[in-house]
Design a protein around this nucleic acid. Sequence first.
RNA 1: GGGCGCUUAGCUCAGUUGGCUAGAGCAAUCCGUUUACACCGGAUAGGUCGUAGGUUCAAGUCCUACAGCGCCCACCA
Length: 754
Amino acid sequence: MNQNEKIDKIFLKPYNPLQHEEETYMLWEKESVFNPDKCVVKKYSNSKESPFSIILPPPNVTGSLHMGSALMLAIQDILVRFQRMKGRKTLWVPGTDHASIATESKVEKILMKQKIRRTDLTKEQFLEKVDEFAESQRKEIKDQIKKMGASVDWSREAFTLDKQREEAVKTAFTILYERGLIKRGEQIVNWDPKGQTTISDDEIEYQEGKATLYTFKYAKDFPISIATTRPETKVGDTAVAVNPEDKRYKEYIGKEYEVNFAGCTLKIRIVEDKNVDPEFGTGALGVTPAHSKVDWEIAQEHALPWYKVINEYAKMETSNPEINGLKTTEAREYIVNWLKKENLLEKEEEIDQNISISYRSGGVIEPLPKLQWFIDVNKKFTLPLSSIPGVEAGKKVTLKELMLHVVKEGHIKIIPERFDKIYYNWIENLHDWCISRQIWYGHQIPVWYKENKESETEVHIGIKKPEGAGWVQDPDTLDTWFSSGLWTFSTLGWPGNADMSEKLKEVKKRGDLLEYHPTTVMETGADILFFWVARMILMSTSLLGEIPFQTVYLHGMVRDEKGRKLSKSLGNNIDPRDLSKQYGTDAVRLSLIIGTRPGNDSRVSLDKLKAYKHFANKIWNASRFVFENTTDYNEKSTPEKLPKKYEEYVKNCLDLAREVTEDMENYRFYLAGEKLYHYFWHTFADIIIEEAKKDINGNNVDLSNAAKHSLREILRMNLKMLHPFMPFITETVWQRSPFLLNRPLAVESWPTKK
RNA sequence: GGGCGCUUAGCUCAGUUGGCUAGAGCAAUCCGUUUACACCGGAUAGGUCGUAGGUUCAAGUCCUACAGCGCCCACCA
């Protein structure tokens, strides 16, 4: 068998991705090229260069990965592989998120199908089921991450609900509590009667709808008419608010009336408040402090009493037995009828109104006052330690100020820039963050209560249950974003063994946290800028006095071919693995990357997938051609100075390398990828190879050698540059090539201009 | 109510700080079955870069207004 027959044997045609991808990933793992420590030992990376670090946004264990995750993995892998090849010590930490509410309700649904209700199980039994489910999803997700070729360091895999992260959560809670930033209080919260839990402002979605606006008086002898879409809540009114500028009601301000309204006795005071719009309705607002956020604030302002008239099941709780226990909608009907009967109803009109919906459970949000835990974003506290320029250690700041400062001063750069404004706007409107949830799955709040002899409640906040009998832990769990907010440093060993309250500094002396934090870049979906990115900034700046990342790269949403959202309920959901099987992972990655600008939505395109699958085949065959035709190539026989034509070819390729490098360094890999594609196919394959064919078989030995030399050099550079984009095929070719020395392509050096 | 994005070839989209005859993929038309590849090659056609003004030696790129589509935030009880 001659050389070319051998090459034919190892380069079977056409290129079949399925045949090579798995073994290639195994090769990388065997060689530990994803582990930065081992890369230093093996001298694959230069420990003197500044490290490059990135933490994977942890996918929720609610289900398997979707196309958005595939895009995320592709972008991050490109960034990471590029830096690794440039010789930087490079860390990419993988992990998953327990996604408390989402996972809990998912498991509940699964149990329902088996005719098991949550209430049939004890808390322990239920959590066991959830853990079981989460574990199986994690396996699935891990498999998907590998299939996408993501070069993550599995030895550092993390889970937001594992032991280490639990320690981080408890520590964070304790520190924030000690600084007075976490408080417990009765406040109006977004209650989800369907999910039976509170949710944060950001977890609400608005649905457009119509509502009836009723205009009426509480009673015949009451001087002012009010308008509302929710008459049933009016049994909880304690005031009527009017605009101070409104002349119509000036004379009533400060007066108090006792009225009998729908069988309930109400004491209504007339107050003035700037927030009341004189143009709307009658210009007078019936204040229901317990069941409306705006009203709650008005009530706070005027020290009004409040009465809860709707309970956690969205049923009435009133002194009138005819209404008590009714659903809110039934109570509304009762009250409207009563108004009609009493001849108090003046007007009924239809208006546009948005309905607040929980984005997890779909339940209609009922504002309720409840005893909950909050993070106070407006309270001044002393930052004990800081490496943030402009905020020295010891300075008094609020969380809001910190969060604004680091972005406004450019310590954190957001790509694309336009999201800066959106971020500022969100922070400026930020209210206290309600962090307690009435569900089982998640980090239980590290607070313990005990009744003492005087039947007062003692409270203990800390990492461990206090000594002695009688301590009961707060049953609530934390908002899932509390633990994911710690993600950039909880994955890097924080808090470790140090005594957190005393020696924050000590922590930084330890391994990963010192080496890799702040992380270089956070790449994630633009849709979780508020949920997550802002929370990470909050946690990192306040707990470590450090930014969590230098750059935020935001990607848009991946939609289907028609531009619709991909979702299970629409039935157009795609498992990236199915596309990988059909087109090869490299093609899937390229199709998601090329032409997708940061922050913009993109569409799954079968045309693109097909095109890049063909491209993989092109690389395969062009490589085969080069190796077949250069088997007798001898470096020594290459003329020192290449003939002009080949000199130009090589120079052009080096120019491309410079341009591509610059694009990569500036996060324009969606351009770099296209340039590489175009160069490889339409310059290297179509022009250079075709030109070289003549010279290789010609009589001029020097020209022939120069052609062989140039083909190899250009192919070598292209395989390297294409590797971050198409890791599988480039590595597979490399492993079969004369280029292979003592290391995989994944840790070969990135081409630079000599 | 406030803010943001998009509008470029038949379709889906690039075009980096204003600078060469405006690009890619797919689709279309014609030719080619020469030993890397038919998951191929060569060629052709196709755009007054949403509209109207403006700045500039020069505008797809900057400014202003308008239109259509989409998104985010706030929210009127």
